[in-house]
């Protein structure tokens, strides 16, 4: 398990072009007990931020694919960060302790962060698990350049026709803009406490 400390310096805003920009700061606790933020990654070109959880059957389809994505793209300067913002009162399976067990069992090679106040999910407007975002560095802040599904076939990894995250990252790493910046994601809804 990588235990790099990340420093997030993020808030959310919308530029005049309608692009969502993250400029606020927050830090979240990783399953290894350390607070994690983006700032410790000064060399990162961007991040894949995945809102996921323990209980959702759809999220359960993806651990191997996430490990593979992180293995490939961390080396290229785009690490994965997984965040669980599920309401642990409604879903006991999503408590911090169970997250630790899950990360061990699935051999997560990326940080799995706990968002107990659900503030980070609200910043991203994350709605489901899994719900993927790519944020790309633009000077001092990050722009959300992709919002949606990890790929187009949760159930059958061998039948994936469009690996959306990989496709977007490959375009970004070639200096292009993402041609398919928004896709529909199926999963479990994140219910926000009032």
């Amino acid at each position: 398990m990588k235990t790099k400390l990340f420093l997030f310096f993020l808030t959310i805003g919308i530029t005049s072009f309608g692009q969502v920009t993250i400029t606020d700061n927050f830090s979240l606790k990783n399953v290894d007990g350390r607070m994690v933020s983006l700032g410790d990654f000064p060399m990162a070109k961007g991040f894949v931020v995945i809102f996921t959880c323990n209980h959702c059957p759809f999220a359960k389809l993806y651990p191997k694919r996430l490990n593979d994505l992180n293995e490939k793209y961390t080396k290229l300067g785009v690490p994965i960060i997984a965040i669980s913002s599920m309401d642990t009162i409604s879903y006991e399976e999503d408590t911090y302790l169970k997250m630790i067990q899950k990360a061990k069992k699935e051999h997560f090679n990326f940080p799995y962060l706990y968002d107990p106040t659900q503030e980070v999910a609200k910043l991203f407007h994350a709605q489901k698990t899994p719900h993927a975002f790519i944020i790309w560095r633009d000077g001092e802040h990050f722009n959300i350049v992709y919002n949606g599904a990890i790929d187009d076939n949760g159930m059958h990894p061998n039948e994936v026709e469009n690996p959306y995250i990989s496709m977007a990252l490959d375009e970004l790493l070639e200096g292009k803009t993402v041609s398919n910046p928004e896709t529909i994601t199926i999963g479990c809804q994140i219910y926000f406490r009032e």
């Binding site: 759809f58 709605q127 489901k128 599904a149 187009d152 076939n153 949760g154 159930m155 059958h156 039948e159 026709e161 469009n162 529909i184 994601t185 199926i186 999963g187 809804q189």
Partner: peptide, 16 residues
């Protein structure tokens, strides 16, 4: 529940 239902569906479903 896979991607084809999104392509084929005639309604405006966001996956929820």
């Amino acid at each position: 529940p896979n991607a084809s239902i999104m392509k084929d569906s005639s309604f405006n479903w966001d996956g929820t």
